[in-house]
């Protein structure tokens, strides 16, 4: 599967900086996945589960609010925080917790 360079920035520093195959985030109006060769796009990201597939391995995250930008081949995700989770259900639960504690 073809890959693209992804950078995930949080105030705590870059979480991911390298070639990945897929990124999925919870966008402004639903789940949004990006593969290599996506058209240029900027989207708002809300608190919710997301995942990154890097060399075949899937890592689930909870992403905070921010933006996802596809610029040429580069994809940049700017979020308030990114927390690792074991699987989708855990990520979902963590994000519910994160939005409730507000």
């Amino acid at each position: 599967m073809s890959s693209f360079p992804l950078r995930i920035f949080t105030p705590e520093g870059p979480i991911v900086d390298g070639e990945v195959e897929t990124i999925v985030v919870t966008a402004y109006n639903g789940s949004l996945g990006v593969l290599a060769g996506h058209a240029p796009m900027i989207s708002a990201v809300v608190i919710g589960p997301g995942k990154v597939v890097q060399s075949g391995a899937t890592q689930w995250y909870v992403f905070g609010e921010g933006t996802l930008e596809v610029r040429g081949p580069d994809v940049v995700l700017l979020v308030d925080f990114a927390e690792k989770a074991d699987n989708y259900d855990a990520a979902k639960a963590q994000s519910v917790e994160a939005s409730v504690s507000e």
Binding site: T10, P11, E12, D80, F81, A98, E102
Partner: peptide, 10 residues
Amino acid sequence: DSKAASRVAK
């Protein structure tokens, strides 16, 4: 951590 910061900021 920045999660805490985001909570405070909100």
